[in-house]
Amino acid sequence: MALTDVWFLLIAVLWTGYLVLEGFDFGVGMLLPVVGRDPIDRKVTLKTIGPVWDGNEVWLLVAGGATFAAFPFWYATLFSGFYLALLIILVALILRGIALEYRGKLDDATWHRRWDAVIVGSSAVPALLWGVALANIVRGVPMGADHEYAGTFFTLLNPYALLGGITTLLLFALHGAIFLALKTHGEVHDRALKVVPPIGIATVVAAAGFLGWTQTLDGSWITWLLALAAALCLIGGLVASRLGREGWAFIGTAATIALAAATLFTTLYPNVLPSTTDAAFSLTTVNAASTAYTLKIMTWVAVIFTPVVLAYQGYTYWVFRRRLGRSDIPVTAQKANA
């Protein structure tokens, strides 16, 4: 296997890891007013992702950096053509981080409500736009022989991409609801379980439509198998949630996201950004890649440091594995919000 193929695979894994881990973060943020009916329950909800949300975003930084280093022409075309969409995502992620950090600085109901609204909005916007971006990458964009994007922001808002955005929005909301059911007990746990069936049904419909449409673009027997496996994992996760097996339900939705991402990247390969103007203008793993020497150095760096990062993040999840409830909120905080 050529190093260009290895790095395409590694970048696909990095983006998949980001979508799986940040997906439940986005879902928790979107569901904050639904499962957190009072200030204490909202604190419980946010505490479930408090120790891990910033670590989950590291996957985005590494994926973006790896794309820049391994496939600079892909990175350049993406960030010029998708500039406004990616800028909106970046602003949303910045606001989300600020909101999560600053929300608890004051014991004031109005202060909390405003930051809660920011958390909800800044979780929903990236959840939608990441799906739009990924769908456009797979579908292709208008691009000339110079590999310059020839469309506008509204070119990206085509029906296929919008369906992709709706699918990721719903899938992340479902992933977040199941994560909350896994990580909490008491009222937040019960409310999270109640929203799983309606969100789950909507997700099944949207995901089936999106993955089915994807197969009509450039599907193969491998992508059909991956899409079918994603569907089975989604249904299995919903059944496990119904049976009260939150751990298996979470594995089901996580596997659904991972297999859906695998379907998209497998459909994309060997392209990294197809051209809808002329297939000859498409960016591929060959013409978009860095030099062999650069890829060789990157490979050694990845071999050395990736296990360290994975071990540290795994340890973090292990330390903060306990379920949370209202009893875990300090008495002083409960009195302040009474």
Rank of each mutant, 00 (worst) to 15 (best):
K43N: 11
Y83H: 12
G81F: 03
R42D: 04
N56M: 05
G97Q: 08
R42K: 15
G97E: 09
I89C: 02
E101G: 00
G131H: 05
A127T: 10
K105L: 13
W111V: 05
W74L: 15
P142V: 02
A85C: 01
F68H: 06
R37M: 01
G104F: 13
Y83W: 12
R42F: 06
F71K: 12
A109S: 14
V52L: 14
V141K: 01
A117E: 00
L90E: 12
Y102I: 13
T67S: 15
L87T: 14
I119L: 11
H112P: 00
P72N: 10
G104I: 03
G64N: 07
L78E: 07
F71S: 08
G97W: 04
D38N: 15
T48W: 06
D108N: 15
R113W: 09
A85P: 02
L106G: 01
V141A: 02
A69R: 01
W74R: 07
P51E: 11
A109D: 14
I88A: 15
N56H: 12
G50M: 05
R37H: 09
T67I: 04
A133I: 13
L87I: 14
R37C: 01
K47P: 01
Y75M: 08
W111R: 05
G50P: 02
F68S: 07
A99R: 10
P142E: 02
L86C: 06
I98G: 00
Y102P: 00
R37Y: 00
L134Y: 10
